[in-house]
């Protein structure tokens, strides 16, 4: 490590929290748009970002009455940026809802398994949405047609034989970029081995890089 590296590290730490959060939120959004399965909800990050958005909205509301042309222009800048942030947050949450809707039972199982860990899969609101939506759906199915089936065939989550619980394709190919050295990876079920170095872009199976994406060593693009 030479002096340049040391200086760069000091400056990287000096990057304000807001900018780091923007990088993190952007990365989470891209990952959620690209990954075939739902990723853990970044609770702390979302709390910080939503808090700041709320404050910024208040600021805009306070200053809208101000007719000074110069203040007016800064308000345009502030509002443009606010809209960009709102788009990021909205698109991120909607991408998550899409995955929750596509695989509700699988998500529910995964969430139940993850609540004990430090990174639960769903936020409280998402969990509420999922359980209530699912309750409405199964009630609707039961009254419209399932109720007329024999009791043994009424389940929606039968896992004997071929599982009824639909899962996302965990081996789907994704584009990713290494943020740190990863080393040699191995594609299970094939003879393929290759080394992922920092900065490399690879097309690989999601299941191969999943753990590194979660730890933040690899990002999806």
């Amino acid at each position: 490590m030479d002096i340049d590296d040391l200086l760069a590290e000091v400056s990287a730490d000096a990057v304000p929290r807001e900018t780091r959060d923007l990088q993190e939120l952007t990365r989470a959004w891209v990952a959620e748009r690209v990954a075939p399965e739902l990723l853990p909800h970044p609770e702390a990050l979302m709390e910080r970002v939503l808090g700041r958005i709320r404050k910024q909205i208040e600021l805009v509301e306070d200053q809208t009455g101000n007719m000074d042309p110069r203040a007016n222009f800064t308000l345009i800048v502030v509002q443009t940026e606010l809209e960009r942030f709102k788009f990021l947050v909205r698109s991120f949450l909607r991408a998550r809802i899409k995955k929750i809707d596509t695989h509700p039972l699988h998500t529910l199982n995964q969430h139940a398994a993850s609540t004990a860990t430090s990174a639960p899969l769903l936020s409280t609101a998402e969990y509420q949405y999922l359980t209530q939506h699912q309750a409405l759906l199964s009630q609707h199915y039961a009254t419209s047609f399932l109720g007329q089936f024999p009791a043994a065939l009424q389940q929606l989550d039968d896992t004997t034989g071929i599982s009824m619980v639909d899962k996302p394709d965990e081996d789907a190919a994704v584009f990713c970029r290494a943020l740190r050295e990863v080393g040699e990876v191995f594609v299970e079920g094939t003879e393929k081995r290759f080394e992922i170095k920092r900065g490399d872009v690879w097309v690989v199976r999601w299941s191969v890089v999943r753990d590194w994406v979660r730890s933040g060593d690899v990002e999806l693009i």
Binding site: D169, D171, A172, A173, V174, F175, V185, V187, T190, E191, K192, F194, G199, D200, V201, W202, V203, V204, R205, V208, I221
Partner: peptide, 30 residues
């Protein structure tokens, strides 16, 4: 079928254009 294609130096818009085809072929072969 195994994937593992190096794409160093690829651009953002190029990823967007090639994504459906490249990942589609890999997934299909798999």
């Amino acid at each position: 079928a195994a994937g593992g294609v190096n794409m160093n130096g690829v651009g953002g818009m190029e990823v967007a254009e090639g994504r459906t085809f490249v990942t589609g072929v890999i997934d299909g072969l798999r």
